[in-house]
Simulated scan of single mutants.
Amino acid sequence: MPTISRKGQLMPESPIRKLVPFAEQARKDGKHIYYLNIGQPDIKTPQVALDAVKENDIEILSYSRTEGSKAYRQKLAAYYEKHNIHVSHTDIIVTTGASEALLFLFSSIMDPEDEVIISEPFYANYIAFSTATGVNVVPAVCSIEDNFALPPVETFENLITDKTKAILICNPGNPTGYLYSEEEIKQLAAIAKKHDLFLIADEVYREFVYDGNSHYSIMQLENTDDYTIVIDSVSKRYSMCGARIGCLISKNKTVMQTVMKFAQARLSPPTYAQIASEAALDTPQSYFDDVIAEYVDRRDTLIHELKQIDGVKVGTPKGAFYCIAELPIKNSDNFAQWLLEKFSINNETVMIAPAGGFYSTPGLGLNQVRIAYVLNKESLIKAVHILKEALKVYKD
């Protein structure tokens, strides 16, 4: 019988989505599920974006430009200007989600067996992208003990080899909610310049920053144009996950020309989704003010409730809408499946994301889960109550 590739065998399952069959069965059994496993906001998509598609009079749904429509990229550049990020529309390539941007980038700047240093835990699909391109992830391990703060600069330097090509961060972070300070960003940039590496920042959660803090983009750095690359997306910012529109931003012309070749091979990003994304840029600041206030309220509720459970340890996110919680269990994969198959209160249960899949270091995160606080406060309180009662009876 024909065999699949080694790369196919190594491709990891999504820790976020692999439990879906168990959730589907739980629903068939009549259970109500509180979904804490995936970053799908319940916030309404801005009406201006939806209306732009509904009211469009396109008669031929043709290809867009490979790099994305000029009008959208120009409007994006104006958006970034408001955030003190000075780029031209020629510094932007529109992609089918941030995922495609990362795949194109990994293929453009790294060869198989090259290395990328990533602060760990990290977005699980970074492993998938590295596997797909043959790149090796080298983790810079962060700890829940200090709220997943960036490791000392020396840690990064000690990980650099002749195969290292880039440092990748997510700011604010998924799955930890960690927000990198301006000082930390500048330290990483100094390392990148010193060792001739690319510094990549996944900034899809830029707007979601709390407690009076502000987001500092690597694109605000001076004299780093050849080194810095930003990945962005409309998915979380405008609650438009289904649009699948992201982008890659860099002033490094060689990088952009190379990424463009990969983009040409997939022809173009989706036209209607670009129309919606362009219109979404007209979303008023009041929308974000309300959304951020809602997420702060949800975060505070979730963290407070989790801290009432004996044996649970949790960090406090400064951004995004996730947290990592350490539970008094041995294996969160087994626990998450058990919750869906075996446990409920009043026919209600919870779906969580086992955190082991957010680590590349063997053995780390096995007793941790990622929780997305994308539900209303009442639902979060009910979900944590279910977790609390489940932990009382669960046996590893």
Rank of each mutant, 00 (worst) to 15 (best):
L168W: 01
V204H: 05
R17L: 13
K251E: 05
S5P: 01
A124D: 14
D290C: 04
I160D: 06
D289R: 05
I60T: 14
Y359R: 05
Y322L: 04
S268I: 00
L339Y: 03
F288Q: 11
D333Q: 09
V204F: 15
Q40A: 13
P172D: 10
P151R: 04
Y180V: 06
I92N: 02
V374W: 00
V94W: 00
K70G: 05
G177S: 07
A276E: 01
D333K: 09
E341H: 06
D396C: 02
A49E: 08
H89E: 11
Y72M: 02
K395V: 07
V350H: 06
E182G: 08
D42I: 09
E305Q: 13
I185C: 10
K70T: 11
E207F: 06
K186M: 13
Y287E: 02
L150T: 09
P328I: 00
A166R: 00
Q257R: 11
D289S: 10
D202H: 15
R266L: 07
S181M: 07
S379W: 05
L197R: 04
I345F: 06
Q285R: 03
K236I: 13
S239L: 05
D300A: 07
M219T: 07
F335E: 08
V48R: 10
L10S: 08
D232R: 03
D211V: 00
K307E: 05
C247T: 06
L179R: 13
I160V: 13
L19I: 03
I200D: 01
Y123L: 13
C170T: 04
K75F: 12
S64N: 08
K318G: 08
E55S: 12
I292K: 11
A26F: 09
I144P: 08
Y123P: 06
K75H: 15
L221G: 15
A166W: 03
I4R: 13
Y227T: 15
A166G: 12
Q9Y: 15
G8Q: 15
I352Y: 07
S239P: 10
L375H: 08
N346Y: 06
H32E: 14
Y373Q: 00
E378N: 10
D226W: 04
G68L: 01
V350T: 10
E378I: 00
N171H: 03
A325M: 04
L50W: 03
D111E: 14
L61E: 15
S88F: 09
N334W: 03
A390C: 01
I93E: 04
S250F: 04
D146K: 07
L199H: 04
C142S: 14
A189P: 03
V312G: 11
T161R: 05
R266D: 13
L168C: 01
S119W: 01
Y79C: 06
A149E: 10
T254I: 04
I352F: 15
R73P: 13
S143G: 08
A49N: 08
E184L: 00
T301M: 02
S277M: 00
H86I: 04
R73T: 08
I58M: 11
N174P: 01
I92R: 00
D91Q: 07
N125I: 01
R27D: 05
A49L: 03
R237H: 13
L61I: 12
D282E: 07
R73W: 06
A23D: 06
M219A: 14
V230P: 00
E203S: 12
E294C: 07
L248T: 02
I16E: 10
M240K: 03
